[in-house]
Design a protein around this nucleic acid. Sequence first.
DNA 1: TATTGTTATACTCTATAACTATA
DNA 2: TATAGTTATAGAGTATAACAATA
Lengths: 161, 161
Amino acid sequence: MGTPRAHRDGSDEAIDGAASDGVFDGLLTYRMRRAWLAVQADLAETLKPFDLRMITFSALVLVEANPRLSQASLARLMAVERPNLVMIVDELARRGLIERNRAPEDRRAYALDVTEAGRALCRDAMQAVRAQDARLFRGLDACERRAVEAAFATLRRSASP
Amino acid sequence: MGTPRAHRDGSDEAIDGAASDGVFDGLLTYRMRRAWLAVQADLAETLKPFDLRMITFSALVLVEANPRLSQASLARLMAVERPNLVMIVDELARRGLIERNRAPEDRRAYALDVTEAGRALCRDAMQAVRAQDARLFRGLDACERRAVEAAFATLRRSASP
DNA sequence: TATTGTTATACTCTATAACTATA
DNA sequence: TATAGTTATAGAGTATAACAATA
């Protein structure tokens, strides 16, 4: 629990995962990091049966929600660079989950659309993610949940100003 | 705000950062991700003046707190693989912040120790990180802070079981 | 046989420069 | 000239296999 100082010569039997936090005690940043790593791993596990990663899931959901979206728009929505989106869209298109249609009014751009298979997978995966989200945060009562939501919103705004 | 459905052909002037959350509304996982990305960027910025990354800062703090630590023990504490720690320790040693001393009782292992320069940098960087942490979470009152701490602890336990 | 530190390697994620074809 | 999609590339971060020295 406490800071594991002055243990003898490099052996670490007395230093387990919990004890290693000692030196970072009081830093909510580090507690948040640990919590996020666990949540992230859990989300990846939830998406694995659908053969989706976080980033392909996000892309699929956004294309489903925004018919005839261009890749550049999708990149802006996902806050990723356009080149990194190419392989993501490639993968979803190759699996028949979305289609790269040409935009008639701008022959440079694609108009991305979800297929029926994509819509079905999107629905099922989203349902699993929502269930997992509810499971993760079910330990919080209404007051705690409000506090956490407020904290997330505040952090997003107050960090990196 | 709401889900930006059925906008016309791929243009996204109406879809800014806030609107893009619409489809993920209700998912605390996604709100947490956004918040963590902001906090992470902020921490990196805080450490930049000290020429430290999150991972080198963590290593330095843990070596300072655990004299004569072996690299294998440090790797276990940081939950990174041993090979990935070599270059991290290389960097800290090259900068004269820690020393690779030989462990007399096990000639395979190093006994890592922080130097005076390392201790000073560790102190200054930790002070900056604590100040930044306080700034980030200053919006929370005592009750909210307790709720957030409890939530982080719960998430870390309940995720990936 | 197991462990420490190390090298080599690979895979993911992300970021930038530059090309093409359109606008 | 500016933008959309693409290619190539480079940098982090992280993971495994295998080796020499030592236990």
